[in-house]
Amino acid sequence: MTLFVDIVPDDAPGGRSEPKSAGGSSRLRSIGTRVGLPLLSVLVFGIVWQLVAVSGIWSETFVPRLGTVWQAFVDMSTTHNGIRGYADYYWWEHLYMTLRRVLAGVVIGVVLGVLLGLAMGTVGWLRRLLEPWLTFLRALPPLAYFFLLVIWLGIDEAPKITLLALAALPPAAVATTAAVSAAPVALIEAARALGASRAEVIRDVVVPSALPETFTGIRLSVGIAYSSVVAAELFNGIPGIGGVVKDASNYNNTPVVLVGIIAIGLSGLIIDGLLRTIEHRVVPWRGKV
């Protein structure tokens, strides 16, 4: 007796490839949701903004039409009537100077904050000594001490970078302190029982367990520093997006202010996305253990 076995190829219609196509369509729907919903919200916001601007409820000084904002963006990107961009700089040159200041301030603030948090989390008396000062600094709005920095350091780059560093330091320090203090005691005791020194315990147990929370603090530091950039560029802030926003507001130039705000917001989203990517690479176990 001959036994005939009908084997259906995986790629044949109706074969076993259907679950794969279902999974592919599910991924497409997920990507469409992640991308489509934000775009839809932006579109709805733009339509509502344009309707309010056209209705005349408020003056165009307060709510300019989208075409006016676009023209301001074009003017900041080109040379028109003998004027180069805004204040003789194109918008990307302003943004570059702002990002350079933010980078310098964040690097200084985050490095000092992480080192300080590591020390405070491992040395109890140091934490009790410095924690009130960190809380005091964190409670101060950057504008409150910026004028003092200008008196001490002048109006060049030093007070701007110092302000951004002071804004970035407390979140990184507080998050690292909390993360180090919450390191698993069982793992620490096990490492000590195996003969690890204090430095080895910190390097091999405490630091890896603290990394996820530390990255959260770093992201907060970058966000707070970036939100302080307008204050940092109050004096001698051109070239700089914050300086553009401040200068344009003096003349009720709302379209230019909006272009500056959009540039700050979009670049902030990109920076946060890069930090998320770095976090996933450095701390791949976050949320899985």
Rank of each mutant, 00 (worst) to 15 (best):
M1N: 15
L3E: 14
V5N: 15
D6S: 13
V8C: 08
D10L: 15
D11N: 13
A12S: 11
G15K: 02
P19M: 02
P19A: 01
K20E: 14
G23T: 12
G24F: 12
S25Y: 14
I31H: 10
G32Y: 02
V35Y: 07
P38A: 08
P38H: 03
V42R: 05
L43P: 02
V44L: 13
G46I: 10
G46Q: 08
I47R: 08
Q50S: 09
V52E: 09
W58Y: 12
E60P: 15
F62Q: 14
P64S: 07
P64Q: 06
R65E: 08
L66N: 03
W70K: 09
Q71H: 14
D75C: 10
T79Q: 11
H80M: 15
H80P: 09
G82Q: 08
Y86D: 02
A87E: 09
A87L: 06
D88V: 04
Y90I: 08
W91S: 02
W91N: 01
H94D: 03
H94G: 04
Y96A: 11
T98F: 06
R100K: 14
R101T: 08
R101M: 11
V106P: 05
G109K: 00
V110H: 01
G113K: 10
L118Y: 08
M120I: 02
V123W: 15
R128W: 14
L130I: 13
L130E: 08
E131I: 11
L134A: 03
A139F: 09
L143E: 03
A144V: 05
A144M: 04
L153T: 06
A158V: 11
K160F: 02
I161Y: 00
A165F: 05
L166V: 03
L166I: 08
A167F: 00
A173I: 01
A175E: 07
A179M: 01
V180H: 04
V180D: 00
V180F: 09
A182K: 06
A183H: 10
P184W: 04
V185R: 08
A186K: 14
A186F: 10
L187Q: 13
A191V: 01
R198E: 10
V201A: 07
D204S: 13
V205Y: 03
V207A: 10
P208G: 03
F215P: 00
I218V: 12
S221D: 04
I224D: 03
I224C: 05
A225Q: 01
V230R: 03
I238P: 00
I238H: 01
I238S: 00
I238M: 03
P239L: 06
G240T: 05
I241W: 00
G242V: 02
V244C: 07
V244Q: 05
V244D: 03
K246N: 15
S249C: 04
S249E: 08
N252Y: 13
V257M: 11
V259A: 00
L266T: 11
G268A: 06
I270F: 10
R276H: 11
R276Y: 10
R281M: 14
R281G: 12
V283N: 07
P284D: 05
W285E: 05
K288F: 13
K288P: 08
